[in-house]
Amino acid sequence: MPAISVRDLRKTFQMKRKSAGLRGSLRALWRPTYQSIEAVRGLSFEMEDGELLGFIGPNGAGKSTTIKILTGILHPSSGEAAVLGHVPWQDRQALAFQIGSVFGQRPQLWYHLPAVDTFYLFGKIYEIDDSSLKRRISFLAEAFEIEELLETPVRKLSLGQRMRCEVAASLLHRPRVLLLDEPSIGLDVVAKQRLRMTIQRMNDMEGVGVLLTSHDAGDIETLCRRVIIVNHGEIVYRDKVSALKRRYLTVKTVDVRYNEQLAPDFSLPGVEMVKVGRYGAKMRFDTRVTPVEPVISGLAAAGSLADVTVSEPSLEEVISAIYARTEV
């Protein structure tokens, strides 16, 4: 049985509309008009037990709405969903014992208290007995490298430190599924890497399944084997991350440097020259149009090579390309 199963899920919000100015305000009072916003439009997907699934999309794509439906705090307009066998909006309380959630922009730790106070509070809320709770806190403190931070008031922690404490807090009750909504938002590169490492570690050690939404393609690239990309409330892509890269990473960028000056009319067939200098050049080609082999031999034949770097587009660029295609 999949940990999460979603079928034809839809959520429509009714937004009040008002024209500009006093007249518009008065009219809205007298005869309010509403606009239907379809935040989620017929999503269907499954997540296996213990899987790390990436769920990405731009602002307003419906990611957070979907996560909130899956935690049971939003009711869908139609469709079906099951999380660990529960219909979330019908069994919210029972499901709460089995899932953890972190909403990156909404802190759950008590701001003025040390994180350990919130940990003890959560221990009671999830009905964990005292000795198990103590063991669990020390285990998570070690796994998340937060031993030194637990007794510092949360307001004095850096964002990265706080976020590690937030994720640790959401794992206190050993959930089988963790819903992470933008956990890396606002973090610097080092903090992001540490957070990713700890999420990966908990997945390896406890087999907790993670549904991860993020703006940062790096999160998905590092952590997830499979990815679902949503836009305007619909799935626009779903496959393995590796397949996504294979399929879309066909454009290579080559930076080349020579030990001697290049011919001023330096060019290669099927290759777009981005920039040509006296000792080097930057170029781009699509492997579906121009095979790699003649490009490399062409580069070698042009002179004595000092350095060659071949780079692929980032996952971010790939995703932008997918969005651009679906915008039409």
Partner: peptide, 26 residues
Amino acid sequence: ALTGEGRVREHSSAAVAGKYWAVFRT
């Protein structure tokens, strides 16, 4: 509610009262 192992978890009244006591204390 189901536990991680799939057994039905019995919530004692003391455990439920303990939650709100913990919230009050925090």
